[in-house]
Simulated assay, not measured.
Amino acid sequence: MPSKLSLSPFALPSPGLAHFNRVAGSQSGQDKLFMVYQYAAYVAVAALTSKRFGNKARADLALRIEKLRATISDARTLYRLFGLFPIIAWAQSLNDPATQPKDKQHLLINKLQAWSMMAYYPLEHLYYLAGKGVFKISPARIGKIAVWSCRFWAAYVVLQIFHIRRSFQLLGEERTRVVRAARERVRTGSATSDELQREKADLQRLAAQEKSLKNDCWVQAGYLPLTAHWSLPGGLLPNNAWVGVCGTVAAVAGLNGVWKRTA
Protein backbone atom coordinates (compact mmCIF):
# COMPACT_ATOMS: atom_id res chain seq x y z
CA MET A 1 0.00 0.00 0.00
CA PRO A 2 1.24 3.55 -0.73
CA SER A 3 2.33 5.52 2.27
CA LYS A 4 0.16 8.33 3.59
CA LEU A 5 2.91 10.92 3.35
CA SER A 6 6.25 10.15 1.71
CA LEU A 7 8.69 12.73 0.36
CA SER A 8 10.92 10.11 -1.27
CA PRO A 9 10.86 10.21 -5.10
CA PHE A 10 11.44 6.44 -5.07
CA ALA A 11 8.36 5.59 -2.99
CA LEU A 12 4.94 4.69 -4.33
CA PRO A 13 2.50 7.58 -4.95
CA SER A 14 1.66 9.21 -1.62
CA PRO A 15 -1.97 10.19 -0.94
CA GLY A 16 -0.77 12.54 1.79
CA LEU A 17 1.60 14.33 -0.57
CA ALA A 18 -1.11 14.53 -3.23
CA HIS A 19 -3.43 16.09 -0.66
CA PHE A 20 -0.77 18.62 0.35
CA ASN A 21 -0.23 19.50 -3.31
CA ARG A 22 -3.96 20.21 -3.70
CA VAL A 23 -3.84 22.51 -0.68
CA ALA A 24 -0.62 24.26 -1.68
CA GLY A 25 -1.84 24.55 -5.27
CA SER A 26 -4.92 26.54 -4.29
CA GLN A 27 -4.79 30.28 -3.63
CA SER A 28 -6.51 29.86 -0.28
CA GLY A 29 -4.20 27.02 0.74
CA GLN A 30 -1.06 28.96 -0.17
CA ASP A 31 -2.27 31.97 1.79
CA LYS A 32 -3.00 29.87 4.89
CA LEU A 33 0.37 28.12 4.72
CA PHE A 34 2.14 31.48 4.51
CA MET A 35 -0.09 32.83 7.27
CA VAL A 36 0.89 30.01 9.63
CA TYR A 37 4.56 30.93 9.24
CA GLN A 38 3.92 34.67 9.37
CA TYR A 39 2.25 34.56 12.78
CA ALA A 40 4.14 31.64 14.29
CA ALA A 41 7.29 33.64 13.50
CA TYR A 42 6.20 36.33 15.95
CA VAL A 43 6.09 33.74 18.74
CA ALA A 44 9.43 32.22 17.69
CA VAL A 45 11.15 35.61 17.55
CA ALA A 46 9.80 36.55 20.97
CA ALA A 47 11.13 33.31 22.45
CA LEU A 48 14.54 33.54 20.74
CA THR A 49 15.10 37.13 21.87
CA SER A 50 13.77 36.75 25.41
CA LYS A 51 16.05 37.31 28.38
CA ARG A 52 15.56 33.75 29.56
CA PHE A 53 16.31 31.89 26.33
CA GLY A 54 18.06 34.45 24.16
CA ASN A 55 21.72 34.51 23.21
CA LYS A 56 23.75 35.85 20.29
CA ALA A 57 23.21 32.82 18.04
CA ARG A 58 19.49 32.74 18.74
CA ALA A 59 19.22 36.49 18.18
CA ASP A 60 20.78 36.00 14.74
CA LEU A 61 18.31 33.22 13.99
CA ALA A 62 15.45 35.43 15.18
CA LEU A 63 16.59 38.18 12.80
CA ARG A 64 16.53 35.80 9.83
CA ILE A 65 13.11 34.44 10.84
CA GLU A 66 11.82 38.01 11.10
CA LYS A 67 13.14 38.93 7.64
CA LEU A 68 11.30 36.00 6.06
CA ARG A 69 8.18 36.86 8.06
CA ALA A 70 8.26 40.43 6.76
CA THR A 71 8.72 39.19 3.19
CA ILE A 72 5.77 36.81 3.50
CA SER A 73 3.61 39.50 5.09
CA ASP A 74 4.41 41.87 2.25
CA ALA A 75 3.67 39.18 -0.36
CA ARG A 76 0.32 38.30 1.19
CA THR A 77 -0.73 41.94 1.10
CA LEU A 78 0.44 42.26 -2.51
CA TYR A 79 -1.54 39.19 -3.56
CA ARG A 80 -4.68 40.77 -2.11
CA LEU A 81 -4.57 43.66 -4.59
CA PHE A 82 -7.17 41.84 -6.68
CA GLY A 83 -9.22 40.77 -3.66
CA LEU A 84 -11.93 43.37 -4.25
CA PHE A 85 -13.22 41.79 -7.47
CA PRO A 86 -14.39 38.47 -5.92
CA ILE A 87 -16.11 40.52 -3.20
CA ILE A 88 -18.02 42.51 -5.84
CA ALA A 89 -19.03 39.25 -7.55
CA TRP A 90 -20.17 37.84 -4.19
CA ALA A 91 -22.15 41.02 -3.43
CA GLN A 92 -23.87 40.75 -6.81
CA SER A 93 -24.78 37.12 -6.15
CA LEU A 94 -26.58 38.25 -3.00
CA ASN A 95 -29.04 40.15 -5.22
CA ASP A 96 -29.90 37.03 -7.22
CA PRO A 97 -32.80 35.01 -5.72
CA ALA A 98 -31.27 31.84 -7.18
CA THR A 99 -27.96 32.23 -5.31
CA GLN A 100 -28.71 34.39 -2.27
CA PRO A 101 -29.15 32.76 1.17
CA LYS A 102 -32.72 31.67 1.85
CA ASP A 103 -32.55 32.78 5.48
CA LYS A 104 -33.25 36.51 5.81
CA GLN A 105 -30.82 36.96 8.71
CA HIS A 106 -28.02 35.30 6.78
CA LEU A 107 -28.82 37.48 3.77
CA LEU A 108 -28.69 40.68 5.80
CA ILE A 109 -25.44 39.67 7.51
CA ASN A 110 -23.84 38.75 4.17
CA LYS A 111 -24.81 42.08 2.62
CA LEU A 112 -23.32 43.98 5.56
CA GLN A 113 -20.18 41.85 5.30
CA ALA A 114 -19.92 42.60 1.59
CA TRP A 115 -20.12 46.34 2.29
CA SER A 116 -17.47 46.06 5.01
CA MET A 117 -15.10 44.24 2.64
CA MET A 118 -15.75 46.72 -0.18
CA ALA A 119 -14.53 49.41 2.21
CA TYR A 120 -11.68 47.32 3.63
CA TYR A 121 -9.92 46.35 0.40
CA PRO A 122 -9.55 49.80 -1.25
CA LEU A 123 -8.27 51.25 2.01
CA GLU A 124 -5.77 48.41 2.41
CA HIS A 125 -4.62 48.84 -1.19
CA LEU A 126 -4.24 52.57 -0.64
CA TYR A 127 -2.15 52.41 2.54
CA TYR A 128 -0.05 49.52 1.21
CA LEU A 129 0.82 51.26 -2.04
CA ALA A 130 1.32 54.58 -0.26
CA GLY A 131 3.77 52.86 2.08
CA LYS A 132 5.69 51.71 -1.02
CA GLY A 133 5.82 55.27 -2.34
CA VAL A 134 3.30 54.75 -5.14
CA PHE A 135 1.06 57.45 -3.69
CA LYS A 136 2.36 60.54 -1.94
CA ILE A 137 0.68 60.38 1.45
CA SER A 138 2.18 61.38 4.77
CA PRO A 139 3.11 58.57 7.21
CA ALA A 140 0.55 59.86 9.73
CA ARG A 141 -2.17 59.75 7.08
CA ILE A 142 -1.12 56.24 6.02
CA GLY A 143 -1.45 55.12 9.64
CA LYS A 144 -5.00 56.50 9.87
CA ILE A 145 -6.01 54.80 6.62
CA ALA A 146 -4.58 51.51 7.90
CA VAL A 147 -6.55 51.79 11.14
CA TRP A 148 -9.82 52.42 9.30
CA SER A 149 -9.11 49.54 6.96
CA CYS A 150 -8.74 47.22 9.93
CA ARG A 151 -11.93 48.58 11.48
CA PHE A 152 -13.91 47.46 8.46
CA TRP A 153 -12.17 44.07 8.70
CA ALA A 154 -13.11 43.91 12.38
CA ALA A 155 -16.72 44.66 11.41
CA TYR A 156 -16.64 41.67 9.05
CA VAL A 157 -15.32 39.43 11.83
CA VAL A 158 -18.03 40.53 14.28
CA LEU A 159 -20.68 39.95 11.60
CA GLN A 160 -19.22 36.51 10.92
CA ILE A 161 -19.68 35.61 14.58
CA PHE A 162 -23.38 36.48 14.26
CA HIS A 163 -23.47 34.47 11.02
CA ILE A 164 -22.05 31.42 12.81
CA ARG A 165 -24.53 31.84 15.66
CA ARG A 166 -27.47 31.92 13.24
CA SER A 167 -26.07 28.91 11.37
CA PHE A 168 -25.98 26.89 14.60
CA GLN A 169 -29.62 27.84 15.23
CA LEU A 170 -30.70 26.71 11.77
CA LEU A 171 -28.74 23.45 12.07
CA GLY A 172 -30.39 22.72 15.40
CA GLU A 173 -33.84 23.34 13.95
CA GLU A 174 -33.15 21.12 10.94
CA ARG A 175 -31.73 18.34 13.10
CA THR A 176 -34.83 18.47 15.31
CA ARG A 177 -37.10 18.14 12.26
CA VAL A 178 -35.15 15.17 10.90
CA VAL A 179 -35.14 13.34 14.24
CA ARG A 180 -38.82 13.98 14.89
CA ALA A 181 -39.79 12.77 11.41
CA ALA A 182 -37.69 9.62 11.86
CA ARG A 183 -39.22 8.86 15.26
CA GLU A 184 -42.72 9.37 13.90
CA ARG A 185 -42.16 6.97 11.02
CA VAL A 186 -40.68 4.37 13.37
CA ARG A 187 -43.61 4.80 15.76
CA THR A 188 -46.20 4.32 13.01
CA GLY A 189 -44.23 1.53 11.36
CA SER A 190 -44.10 3.40 8.04
CA ALA A 191 -40.33 3.78 7.89
CA THR A 192 -38.59 2.16 4.93
CA SER A 193 -34.94 1.26 4.73
CA ASP A 194 -34.38 3.93 2.06
CA GLU A 195 -35.94 6.61 4.26
CA LEU A 196 -33.86 5.56 7.25
CA GLN A 197 -30.69 5.66 5.16
CA ARG A 198 -31.61 9.10 3.86
CA GLU A 199 -32.25 10.38 7.37
CA LYS A 200 -28.93 8.93 8.52
CA ALA A 201 -27.20 10.71 5.64
CA ASP A 202 -28.97 13.96 6.59
CA LEU A 203 -27.74 13.69 10.18
CA GLN A 204 -24.20 12.99 9.00
CA ARG A 205 -24.37 16.04 6.73
CA LEU A 206 -25.59 18.22 9.60
CA ALA A 207 -22.82 16.88 11.86
CA ALA A 208 -20.21 17.74 9.21
CA GLN A 209 -21.63 21.25 8.87
CA GLU A 210 -21.58 21.70 12.64
CA LYS A 211 -17.95 20.57 12.77
CA SER A 212 -17.08 23.11 10.05
CA LEU A 213 -18.83 25.85 12.02
CA LYS A 214 -16.87 24.95 15.15
CA ASN A 215 -13.66 25.22 13.15
CA ASP A 216 -14.78 28.64 11.93
CA CYS A 217 -15.31 29.64 15.56
CA TRP A 218 -11.58 29.08 16.13
CA VAL A 219 -10.77 31.17 13.05
CA GLN A 220 -12.82 34.10 14.33
CA ALA A 221 -11.51 33.63 17.88
CA GLY A 222 -8.06 34.33 16.48
CA TYR A 223 -9.14 37.17 14.20
CA LEU A 224 -11.29 39.06 16.70
CA PRO A 225 -8.50 40.21 19.06
CA LEU A 226 -6.20 40.83 16.07
CA THR A 227 -8.65 43.10 14.27
CA ALA A 228 -9.52 44.87 17.52
CA HIS A 229 -5.79 45.38 18.14
CA TRP A 230 -5.16 46.90 14.72
CA SER A 231 -8.35 48.96 14.84
CA LEU A 232 -7.05 51.04 17.75
CA PRO A 233 -4.27 53.61 17.21
CA GLY A 234 -2.46 52.40 20.33
CA GLY A 235 -3.27 48.75 19.82
CA LEU A 236 -4.92 46.32 22.22
CA LEU A 237 -2.53 43.39 22.61
CA PRO A 238 0.53 43.93 24.84
CA ASN A 239 3.18 42.80 22.33
CA ASN A 240 3.81 41.00 19.04
CA ALA A 241 4.02 37.63 20.79
CA TRP A 242 0.28 37.89 21.48
CA VAL A 243 -0.28 38.99 17.90
CA GLY A 244 1.52 35.80 16.90
CA VAL A 245 -0.56 33.61 19.20
CA CYS A 246 -3.89 35.01 17.96
CA GLY A 247 -2.79 34.93 14.34
CA THR A 248 -1.50 31.37 14.61
CA VAL A 249 -4.83 30.19 16.05
CA ALA A 250 -6.69 31.75 13.11
CA ALA A 251 -4.13 30.46 10.58
CA VAL A 252 -4.07 26.86 11.81
CA ALA A 253 -7.87 26.70 12.00
CA GLY A 254 -8.13 28.24 8.53
CA LEU A 255 -5.60 25.78 7.13
CA ASN A 256 -7.51 22.93 8.76
CA GLY A 257 -10.64 24.07 6.95
CA VAL A 258 -8.88 24.21 3.60
CA TRP A 259 -7.30 20.79 4.23
CA LYS A 260 -10.69 19.20 4.86
CA ARG A 261 -12.33 20.88 1.88
CA THR A 262 -9.64 19.52 -0.44
CA ALA A 263 -9.72 15.96 0.95
Rank of each mutant, 00 (worst) to 15 (best):
W153D: 08
H163Q: 13
G172Q: 05
A114N: 08
D103M: 09
Q100V: 05
N110E: 13
I137G: 01
S93V: 02
L112G: 02
R165P: 01
A89D: 14
R80G: 01
V157D: 07
H106E: 15
L112C: 07
V147Q: 14
L129C: 06
D96R: 07
F82C: 03
R175G: 07
T176G: 00
G133A: 03
P97Q: 04
G133R: 07
R177A: 15
D96E: 11
P139V: 05
G143C: 00
I142L: 02
L107I: 03
R165V: 15
H163C: 00
F82K: 10
D103L: 10
L126C: 09
K132M: 11
V158L: 14
S93L: 05
S138A: 13
Y156N: 14
D96Q: 10
L81W: 11
Q100D: 00
I88A: 13
G131Q: 04
V179K: 14
V157L: 05
F152A: 09
W115G: 00
R141E: 15
T99E: 08
Q169I: 13
R165Y: 15
H106I: 11
R165D: 13
L84P: 01
A130I: 04
R177H: 13
L84E: 09
F162Y: 15
P122S: 01
E124D: 10
L112R: 10
L78A: 15
A98K: 15
L107G: 10
F135Q: 06
E124G: 01
N95D: 14
L94E: 06
W90P: 00
C150F: 07
C150T: 09
